[in-house]
Design a protein around this nucleic acid. Structure first.
Lengths: 358, 358
DNA sequence: ATGAAAGCGCTAACAA
DNA sequence: TTGTTAGCGCTTTCAT
């Protein structure tokens, strides 16, 4: 189908393009004009061109969610939350994968060219180059993750420190004394924060011995390989703290393949509390980082900034909560609960930290 | 940051906007002009406005992948394949989720307004309204799934008939005689096709008794619930054929919670051969429908149509292949393979059916 | 209430 | 090689 313009509609209806535009957009016009124009538009199959409209109005009514690792279910969960908020405000959400070909920097620059009215970014790595790109972007940005204070951007964070403390305290309370930490790549933001959080958490337990490992990425396969390293050595741990659920699931598989029984021989915990925690047997204990909450808040911050560009930057932290399942229970394994749905954690609290705009 | 236009760059460099445009786009210009303009652009942080450029050039250099159910890993796999192809051709891929708020029809109409130069659509349901929207769309569309021949659009299909035959024949060969088919929603395209495929496959085995069930959607939780129905009745099946991997995983969980041993008491098979087949124990036997292949071909068809809009419509069918894992093995259960990576199936064959354009 | 015309930011004729 | 100008499709003053 060839594209039909408003000029053709106007001609077909026998009115000027101005009248056609007014009639189509619900501005003041006589009932007769409206009827003629609407009919002409319907007959011709007219749809207003988005680029022309955007150029004229200076708004695209599109928002972007840019995420590096769409293979991780937690980002899908965030996207759903974001989508719910922005579509309620009349925006369309597009997802930009920064995965295979393009880096976060490219995506930020590209999206900043006017394709969208704003964006939410979940960067895996925060480089100086990315910070520069963020500072130079003409469209509002909300970042999911940790940023230097100097960035002065709206940010929504999980509390990795508390998260790791929750799992470590839990495992120690369950009697575990030899904990292996299987991180994701250490050069990523979540990798760094969870490593720091784990280190801080274990200092409270001087009798606990720890070792650390890094998976090549935050996937099941990489988690499997890294967990094999953790379990192959002489000093076999009695617990594995995984940096996310995917790595945790890989660790459970590695343990099984070595003939270990989870949780009797080895406790395993994950992070994110994704639906996958209910897929493995026993269910995977996990820290809920409030993905749905973070997505929702990020979208709200973005809409607020679009409405009021000069408002001070906000940083919102979402509190984590521990969801205990069979993979970390001591001694006896609980029977199946009869549901693959995950246990509901207590609703996470919010801490909104408003800082003055630079 | 406020948006800076090419007019400001030109003024800053002391040249006309035309010269600035030429210098920026690598057209003929003196070395001195190029240097001045590039420096001015850098100093001002100029980035060309996407909407203005798109309006003028009549191209957005954006392609869309519109998918209903982004929670299903198979669509992520497709997206990765699509992204690889289109980014190699200089296009940016945006993902439009047709999930929560908007229907496929809305998305097709909206995307057709000029946001993108083409789109790939994975509709869950094909309605007359959707077909009308597709026919009226001014931008090229490739559909992943089955369409009436009258639609006359580029299409990439999986072969559900053969797929269901592969699993049914396999289960019968393994000695199973009472097969429950746990479908997804029957009013979806995959639901319809897999039901037909299952029905056709079992006619070849008159001694096999069958029953059919429908999950509320293609998810683990819905699969769990539907499988409970299938297993609770008096005539307990010795095999469950699930319409996709997620439903299959739900079925495995349901069997476990009833104290059944997979595969001894119950064989389970899935469809799509996603990474999740390696997450459950035993591994889930599944039919690989060639998601990566279908995504790649769809992207290639779209690029070909953009290059040559009048070319005849193509329908490409990708052949399925069965990947047998522990969930359907008879008698003894194989030991863990030591890897969470899925077994590699034989590369699927392609059947390209070119039809004359209407 | 309607039409003529300007202009959003950019590129591509056309002249010079 | 460069500057001037038209115009992509649309919305919105400004007259009428």
């Amino acid at each position: 189908m060839a594209r039909v313009t408003i000029t053709q509609v106007a001609a077909h209806a026998g009115v000027s393009v101005a009248s056609a535009s007014r009639a189509l957009n619900g501005m003041i016009a006589s009932a007769e004009t409206i009827a003629k124009v609407k009919q002409a538009a319907a007959e011709l199959g007219y749809v207003a061109d988005a680029t022309a409209q955007s150029l004229k109005r200076g708004k695209t009514h599109q928002l972007a969610y840019a995420v590096a690792d769409i293979g991780n279910p937690v980002y899908v969960e965030m996207m759903s939350a974001i989508e719910r908020v922005v579509s309620a405000s009349g925006y369309r959400l597009v997802l930009s994968s920064t995965g295979t070909s393009s880096s976060s920097v490219d995506v930020v620059r590209d999206l900043g060219r006017g394709y969208v009215d704003g964006m939410i970014l979940s960067p895996l790595r925060v480089t100086d180059e990315l910070l520069a790109a963020l500072a130079a972007t003409p469209v509002p940005v909300v970042v999911l993750g940790r940023l230097p204070d100097s960035a002065n951007l709206d940010t929504v964070r999980a509390d990795s420190l508390t998260a790791m403390r929750l799992v470590v305290d839990h495992l120690v309370a369950e009697g575990r004394r030899h904990i292996a930490f299987v991180n994701g790549p250490a050069d990523t933001t979540p990798g760094t924060l969870r490593r720091e959080g784990f280190a801080a958490a274990v200092t409270a337990h001087p009798l606990v011995s720890t070792r650390s490992f890094s998976a090549a990425d935050f996937t099941i396969a990489a988690g499997y390989a890294a967990a094999r390293d953790a379990l192959d050595g002489d000093h076999r741990p009695d617990a594995i703290v995984a940096a996310n659920d995917l790595i945790g699931i890989g660790a459970v598989r590695a343990a099984e393949d070595l003939g270990l029984v989870v949780p009797d021989d080895l406790a395993v915990t994950g992070v994110d509390n994704t639906e996958l925690t209910g897929v493995v047997r026993p269910g995977l204990t996990s820290v809920d980082l409030g993905a749905e909450e973070r997505g929702r808040v990020a979208a709200e911050l973005l809409l607020a900034r679009i409405a009021e560009p000069a408002r001070p930057a906000h940083t919102v932290a979402v509190a984590p909560s521990l969801v205990i399942r069979g993979s970390s229970a001591s001694g006896i394994r609980p029977a199946g609960t009869g549901s693959t749905a995950r246990d509901t954690p207590a609703g996470p609290d919010l801490i909104d930290d408003e800082r003055a705009a630079g």
